[in-house]
Amino acid sequence: MSAATTTRRTASSGTERRPKEAGRPQAGGSTMDRQRRKLLVPFVGPAFIFYTALFIIPAIGAAWISLHKWAGSGPMTFVGIENYLRVFRDPLFLKSFGNTLLLLFVVGAAIFILAFAMTLVLRDMAGKKIVRSVIFFPHLINALVFGVLAGFIFNPGGIVNTLLAPLGVQNPPAWLAQDNIFPLIMATLVATTTGYFTTILMAGVDRIPPYYYEDCALAGATPFQRLRYVILPLTWDVFGTCAVLWTISSIKIFEIIWVFGGSSGAGIPPTQSWTTAVYTYVTAFSGQSTPAYGAATASAIISLALVSVLVVVLRRAMRRDAVEF
């Protein structure tokens, strides 16, 4: 209490002493700093409590639940890593996990190649602001919408088939057959996500000062050399960020699969298109069989482990000396 009053007194009477202090670097901030430090609890406290109670504790709880056999109510039996062994023996989980990996790597690679190509074209094209703002917009739309629209477009009597008929395609593939849904989902994701990453890459490319390009032109660099020696090194950190972003968001993909094609008969999508997020949800909440909370969280924890490993690896692999410019 006395410390608090002293500080307050210094703060109010400090005006005359201030010029002397101002000579020292950061001295003007020292009273301010001391005052600020006292704000720790009122400023950080509420955010800390909400975040801890509704995010960190559940995350720790998940690790705990994944070590138990539990149907949500009734007794929890400790089974150790049995749940993890169980999901890895479950063909459904293996399929879901495989699909998640496909999304992560195949869709990710497609998105990055396309986004980078688009960035290179966009860089100095007329009307780039319009293009950029249009291709960014799908990021703001719930993926459910794309799933439902795809159902209409790829219907047996839908738009795609009516467009294909005049081209002489008599027996178009059954687009929405259970085996074909997942590749369609992958294509839809590429189409709807590329714009977002293009926007972020563009922000990185736009930071490159134009005189580098002019220097390239004067030195007679080919477009490829310019790409290799100027654009790539200077946007490398943005690439790293994008890769991490995609890793984190691809693991969560759920909505688009849940309604894709609008064909989910019993409210559950065909197992061929499940991802680990869908597996977790269905195993715990489908209401079709006894909920297996342990196995469901185990599958979620496995995705978390996958994200963590990949993020660490990516940060290692993408680490370069930051280029200052």
Partner: peptide, 24 residues
């Protein structure tokens, strides 16, 4: 440490906390 603690959450996918949240 607090900043790191907050950033940690960026990497945790929602399905991890789904079931414990529901129970809580």
């Amino acid at each position: 440490a607090l900043s790191m603690y907050f950033i940690l959450g960026l990497g945790i996918p929602a399905q991890v906390i789904l079931i414990p949240l529901f129970v809580m």
